[in-house]
């Protein structure tokens, strides 16, 4: 059974198209990082699954079922952490957990109590009196207490300090190990994904522009330093492989969408065989992501290309 299957999914709002032609298949438990700049469509994609919104076109299948066929039954198998907490004043943590215990058929009280103790969350305190980090932790506990088959996290660690983030991620990893849960994390914190995600989906302007491992993405971006005057930047500027260029000392640094080993050949092909490549290096995941998405933002048409 497919855990998640999106085929040519689009979602339009009055302000424009938030998602366009998204295909995504998940057939085994894994952690998927969903990244993109603000407004890329990450939250919209996640909101299609519980489901909160309808897809404008395409087909969505979650845990082997049409989400809108029986959303209540589906939500009993899902966990969802929204990017913001909307809890009325006067609610205690224990109230929220008790609510979850009453509505989830497979609520694991022992699991929650264990995590609660470990994280030091006082259920008797008002939700509003908890620190921001503890509020997010509580939201996460509410989403995992029934050991969901699919866990959707929309910025689960936003605005949290590194220590709290580490704890949150620890819980996710533990849950993965115990239950084999598939996790989709939409986040801007790439360092978290590096630790956790084995698959990376990049969205740009509502389109999927990358679907693969983090290594794949990182490997396909390199930093090339060329000798001064050795390259015709004007000619290179028209190449889809050029992500960025910036002066560096007397020479120039160009960021190319290729591996370091291919850099020499690519530059030679673009600028001529006499071009001197001083250095070609791989990049960190974060830098590679930044250059990639920046180039896509500058050229939305390119967002559609693979």
């Amino acid at each position: 059974m497919s855990i998640l299957s999106l085929r040519n999914v689009s979602r339009r709002f009055s302000g424009g198209e938030a998602l366009s032609g998204i295909d995504l298949e998940v057939d085994r438990p894994q952690v998927i990082g969903l990244v993109g700049r603000n407004g890329a469509g990450k939250s919209t994609l996640l909101r299609l699954l519980p489901p909160f919104i309808h897809a404008s076109s395409g087909s969505v299948e979650v845990l082997g079922m049409d989400p809108w066929a029986d959303p209540i039954a589906l939500r009993a198998r899902l966990g969802y952490v929204a990017d913001h907490d909307a809890v009325p004043a006067g609610v205690r943590g224990s109230d929220l957990l008790a609510l979850c215990a009453s509505v989830y058929p497979r609520w694991d009280v022992a699991l929650i109590q264990t995590f609660q103790r470990r994280l030091g969350i006082d259920g008797n305190r008002l939700f509003s009196a908890l620190s921001r980090g503890q509020q997010r932790q509580l939201a996460l506990l509410m989403a995992i207490g029934h050991r969901p088959e699919l866990l959707l996290l929309d910025e689960p660690a936003g605005n949290l300090d590194p220590a709290v983030r580490k704890e949150v991620l620890g819980i996710i990893i533990e849950l993965l190990n115990e239950s084999g849960t598939t996790v989709i994390i939409a986040t801007h914190l790439l360092s978290d994904l590096e630790r956790l995600a084995e698959r990376l989906v990049i969205l740009s302007h509502g389109r999927k522009v990358h679907d693969g491992s983090i290594e794949d993405m990182t490997r396909q971006v390199c930093r090339v330093e060329v000798a001064p005057g050795a390259i015709d930047l004007g000619r290179l500027a028209h190449s889809p492989l050029l992500l960025a260029q910036e002066p560096h000392g007397l020479g120039t640094v160009i960021i190319l969408a290729c591996s370091p080993s291919e850099a020499g050949a690519v530059v030679a092909g673009l600028a001529g065989p006499g071009t001197v490549v001083l250095d070609a290096q791989g990049m960190t995941f974060e830098d590679a992501f930044i250059y990639r998405t920046r180039a896509l933002a500058a050229d939305p048409v390119a967002a559609g290309r693979p």
Binding site: F52, A73, R75, A76, V87, V103
Partner: peptide, 10 residues
């Protein structure tokens, strides 16, 4: 209670 119940099977 609606905001709290978002995403829950209710």
């Amino acid at each position: 209670a609606e905001p709290c119940l978002r995403g829950l099977p209710v």
